[in-house]
Write a protein that binds this DNA or RNA. Structure first.
Length: 692
RNA sequence: GGUCCCGUAGCUCAGUUGGAUAGAGCGUUCGCCUCCUAAGUGAAAGGCCGGUGGUUCGAAUCCACCCGGGAUCACCA
């Protein structure tokens, strides 16, 4: 049994506080094993896994096992004997109750095994515990490395809200993985040789009649006028789209331009590279506003020029993964047989990787890229530093010339690869995964994870607010899909600007005497919190129908609500500091005073304990979010935690509390809560302002 | 047509892998600042969990079939 008091002093106070902390995950694991062992020894039943759940109310305990039902079923199957689940639960109860950290066990309902932790012991032991203890491993070279690809916006225009969903999802997931101890490499794939870039190049060359120098001049004019290159390209791209509809000649130019870009080493390719690179810079700047960063920008041009595909092609041919079609409508193509199918209807063909003209499809290139990510291609990119973030962190970009040796960090070769790509690309992603698994069966399909998510669409009202004319038919639709080609979408920077402006107006009212810089900083933190939380509170497979009112809201379930809760928590400790008190004092008081049980058995006991136990569940919530590839789980938890803290804050006047023991408990619990909240928000990429 | 996703309160969404009285925000109605930040908080009203069958101690959750809505199935990327 964990105990407090004299024993703690024998071992030294700090050692006690730091080393005997048993997390909920650990307690849970011990209990699971105990249940399995008890089922074996008392009933001769082998349980493979035991489901543990959180009871609906604190009065029902801290952990529940609905295991007696399953046990009854298994006993009946084995012996034919019908047992009452409640009686089975009573037997298990006796076995589990002796475990340290468990105060008592109750059999409830039809046979639930409800576990009550030893509250005083738990609190004393976890008062100083790190809410995310594994996070430190994320910088440990011996930790397993994973790669996360996200953002990957075509570098021909500004990013819109749909791209931001991708990036926020990817960035948050990356933070979640790090919180579980994984080493993470973040890649933002740059499709700098695709049709979308070609389209904008066509616009510059044949609509605007500009050469590269003219574009550079334009770029400078734009920045002098406070405008951005990616916004200019956004409009130009839309104009090209309109022009294509009536101008066949221009459309033919596209094929020509695309060819030149792919080939490289010509003026058009140089111009395209300038356009693409400038757009990448703009998009990276936009994402930096949202605290989203990258390690490497792999480019399609290098996949072409370094012949990644050729290497993958050889491997696939040798292993018989792909087949050359000699007849039928796919004659002359290399295809990958996909799924069992009968017939040869239009929708039942194999996936073509190499066209009859010998060129490789996007999916083919993607397989080669995925092989590189997994470290099994047998080729590597060349690299150069692209830029440094203000804090010195480097971002690298790929290049194809090997003339100069550059010392660079190792890239690629991840144990698991997460690709954050919207659900519309599930089919090609499936092919990539299967193709890669065919080449490397030992790694298999599990090594490639498609982190898919539904699109962000516009409500008809939002589309009209952006100035788009809708037909009566469109107005009746549940949502309107955004389209870069049509120039229809909410640009990321516009939305962030509006959020910052709204937040600033409010900060001006609340803190008129604060320096302007600081006010802008707070407004920025609020804007980022609002946008990130807005995109994260939806689960991945929910279509977000964008609505300005909802997205700009600072009320209810928002990032701001969570931030505000943390700010209020911090103000308690600021006040304490003004009285020369620290959390450490309270922690020591806790151990020294011993009789915490009284506090928990008082009227407010359940209330205080609920706060403590909820805040202690961050680690398992993060694990769960990582396991299920679902950041929304963490977002929801964070909101619940903030709400619980607001209630706690409302019900207990901590600084004014006169009962010494209770006050120490309240301080320690408030501290656990604010650290959990701060860490949860940090994992969501949301900062806590100094004041709000 | 095949595959996949969605359908839960007036609206927007969660629902811990099959568990206890189905939750939250917005909106509506009525309350709470001599007190650590009211961007907060309490209460009320609001549900055929799309439908019908099935599986079992037990189903919003699993299975089958329907009904609505969406995505996807290129020698596009």
């Amino acid at each position: 049994m964990l105990s407090i008091g004299r024993k703690a002093y024998n071992y030294g106070l700090f050692a006690y506080l730091n080393t005997t902390a048993m997390t909920i995950i650990q307690i849970q694991q011990i209990l699971r094993e105990a249940v399995i062992a008890a089922a074996h020894s008392r009933f001769g039943v082998e349980l493979e896994q035991v489901v543990a759940e959180i009871p609906p109310r604190t009065e029902l305990g801290d952990l529940a096992f609905p295991v007696a039902f399953e046990l009854a079923k298994k006993i009946k199957q084995a012996t034919g004997e019908k047992k009452n689940p409640r009686e089975l639960a009573e037997v298990l109860k006796a076995e589990i109750e002796t475990i340290p950290a468990v105060a008592c066990v109750e059999v409830a309902g039809a046979g639930y095994l409800n576990i009550f932790f030893d509250r005083a012991a738990f609190l004393s032991a976890n008062a100083a515990a790190d809410p995310l203890p594994n996070r430190a491993l994320s910088t440990d070279p011996s930790s397993p490395k994973v790669c996360v690809e996200h953002t990957s916006v075509n570098p021909n225009k500004a990013a819109h809200i749909g791209h931001v969903r991708n990036s926020v999802l990817g960035d948050t997931f990356q933070r979640i993985l790090k919180a579980t101890g994984k080493r993470v490499e973040i890649q933002n794939y740059i499709d700098n040789t695709g049709v979308q870039v070609a389209d904008v190049v066509v616009g510059f060359l044949f609509i605007e009649n500009m050469n590269i120098d003219a574009i550079k001049d334009l770029d400078k004019e734009l920045s002098d006028a406070g405008q951005t290159f990616d916004y200019y390209c956004w409009d130009l791209y839309a104009r090209v789209g309109v022009e294509y509809q009536s101008n066949e000649a221009l459309k033919e130019k596209r094929t020509e331009v695309l060819h030149l870009i792919e080939e490289g080493n010509n003026e058009t390719a140089e111009l395209a590279d300038y356009v693409a690179t400038r757009n990448v810079e703009c998009i990276v700047d936009t994402m930096e506003r949202l605290s989203i960063r990258y390690d490497l920008l792999p480019r399609e041009s290098e996949i072409l020029h370094l012949h990644f595909w050729d290497r993958a092609f050889e491997q696939m041919k040798q292993l018989g993964v792909i087949r050359y079609e000699t007849e039928g409508k796919q004659a002359g193509c290399w295809v990958m047989p996909f799924e069992e199918h009968v017939g040869d209807a239009d929708n039942e063909t194999d996936k073509i990787l190499v066209r009859s003209n010998g060129t490789v499809t996007y999916t083919g290139k993607d397989i080669a890229y995925q092989l590189w990510k997994l470290g099994i291609l047998g080729l590597d990119f060349c690299y150069r530093e692209f830029f440094k973030y203000p804090d010195g962190r480097e971002v690298w970009i790929t290049r194809s010339d090997e003339t100069t040796e550059t010392v660079h960090p190792p890239f690629g070769g991840g144990e698991t690869i997460y690709n954050v790509i919207d659900t519309r690309q599930s089919y090609p992603q499936d092919i990539v995964r299967k193709g890669v698994a065919a080449i490397s069966p030992e790694r298999g399909e599990k090594a490639s994870v498609h982190l898919s998510y539904e699109m962000v669409a516009l409500s008809p009202a939002a589309a009209e607010e952006l100035g788009f004319r809708l037909s009566d038919e469109d107005r009746k639709r549940p949502f309107i899909e955004m389209s870069g080609r049509k120039g229809l979408g909410v640009k990321a920077d516009d939305l962030i600007d509006r959020l910052e402006a709204n937040a600033l107006a409010e900060v001006e009212v609340r803190h008129p005497d604060t320096p302007a810089d600081e006010k802008r900083g707070i407004a920025h933190q609020i804007a980022v919190g609002a946008l990130r939380y807005f995109l994260l509170k939806f689960t991945r497979n929910t279509v977000i129908v964008f609505d300005f009112k909802e997205a700009l809201s600072f009320e209810g379930e928002t990032g701001l609500f969570c931030q505000y809760s943390a700010v209020r928590a911090n103000s308690i400790f600021r006040k304490l500091a003004e009285q020369d008190e620290t959390v450490l004092d309270s922690r020591m008081d806790l151990v020294a005073m011993g009789s915490l049980a009284d506090v928990f058995s008082s009227i407010d006991g359940n209330d205080i304990w609920s706060m403590a136990i909820l805040a202690s569940r961050l680690e398992e919530t993060v694990e769960q979010a990582a396991m299920q590839n679902e950041p929304a789980i963490l977002a929801k938890y964070t909101f619940t935690l903030a709400k619980a803290f607001n209630l706690f804050y409302h019900n207990h006047k901590i600084i004014a509390e006169t009962d010494e023991i209770k006050r120490a408990v309240l301080v320690v619990v408030a501290d656990i809560a604010r650290r959990a909240l701060t860490n949860a928000l940090d994992t969501l990429g949301i900062e806590v302002p100094d004041k709000m």
